[in-house]
Design a protein around this nucleic acid. Sequence first.
DNA 1: CGTGTTGTACTGACTAGTCAGTCATTCGAT
DNA 2: ATCGAATGACTGACTAGTCAGTACAACACG
Lengths: 217, 217
Amino acid sequence: MAKTRKSIKEQAHAHRGQIPKGARKEEIIRAAAKLFSQKSYHDVTMDDIAEKVGVAKGTIYLYFDSKENLYLEIMEETYEEIESILERETAKSDPAPLKLKKVLGLIFKFYLQNLDVLRILSRDETHLIREHYEFTEHWRLRRIKLYEKILEKGINEGSFRPFKTELTALIIFGLVRSVMFYYKSEKSAESIAEEVFSMISEGILAPGYEKAEAARM
Amino acid sequence: MAKTRKSIKEQAHAHRGQIPKGARKEEIIRAAAKLFSQKSYHDVTMDDIAEKVGVAKGTIYLYFDSKENLYLEIMEETYEEIESILERETAKSDPAPLKLKKVLGLIFKFYLQNLDVLRILSRDETHLIREHYEFTEHWRLRRIKLYEKILEKGINEGSFRPFKTELTALIIFGLVRSVMFYYKSEKSAESIAEEVFSMISEGILAPGYEKAEAARM
DNA sequence: CGTGTTGTACTGACTAGTCAGTCATTCGAT
DNA sequence: ATCGAATGACTGACTAGTCAGTACAACACG
């Protein structure tokens, strides 16, 4: 169709100068991440994102195949980053309790620095799209495996008592998420990690009130 | 517009007879709950729900003002039920540890019986609609308050060591959610509660490996 | 130097499809 | 015959994705 698409405005404003190199893509990711963290996937339109970046909608499609793809790329980027930080830490040969504490610290620190994206990543929107579901599941499983490794190491070392690492890893995973999201505090990542670690390691029971007593309830 | 809406089919099938009284509404809620638990809010259409119930879409609007409203009513119903069960339990004068264990048991039991709706309720779709956000926040806060009460009681009784109840309640909240969702097990609600309670109360550290050691890490 | 050509980043009006909600009509029980 | 319950075709608003066209820079050539 050879229709002229010129509008009333007739080339209203001059083009903004081109942005460096791959900066556009990064710009779009940042803006989209912010929006996705504020509203749900479906409530963020491609027009919203375009407006926030200050480009036309078509531009976004020069860098991403689809909305789903953009969403997935945001998650992937962040995921890779935190996971590599964590795996670098666990590769060290610290004793298990210290290792766990450090990992918690790194997670809380990363979270504090990446509130927006983490909020998306941890969202339980397991039904959005198939890829998203698979992605978050993969991520969850990998994190839980990481915890399990540390726990197993601790049990072997004798620093942790013997328990089912599967359930315990799940517990740690869930509790970390909850603290990340809902714990309002001015404290540093390290001191939050410290507090959380202390609860995980010692439990809630008073030393006087011992297992024997609790067991026959 | 006084246009005739008759289609080619021309009254294809006979109407199903009317259903008892308020049974229709309950039917719709159940069908919708099932669908919402399988797909996200936006991916479930009113046509889907109508089809699943076996009525026309218009019928749903005889019982609910809007899709949002239907969604909210599902949540409200379930929420009221579990919360009243929990509050009946906490009103008893059991010692705190037993009380906590019982509450965990009831939550897991209720969850096992109401997988569909709980999956919706605990979903972190905090941005769907304003009412939904307020609703889930209200629910979370109330549950956390419930944990806090039990924890405070335990500290006063001397059965729990003194810790920050706010953070600990948040931890329990998160860990329960995680276990509910992801713990694949054939065990009964009681025995899951037992396992979880044991982790919460005793922690992960081996008795030999004591605080002193952990503290100077 | 001016003029033409090419490459590319970008634009935004438009298309095609979706879906919540409506309402004129029909059903069926009394 | 009457009337409330139920129907489902239709509407209107919305949005992901498209693509013909624009702007501009860089280089080429006479």
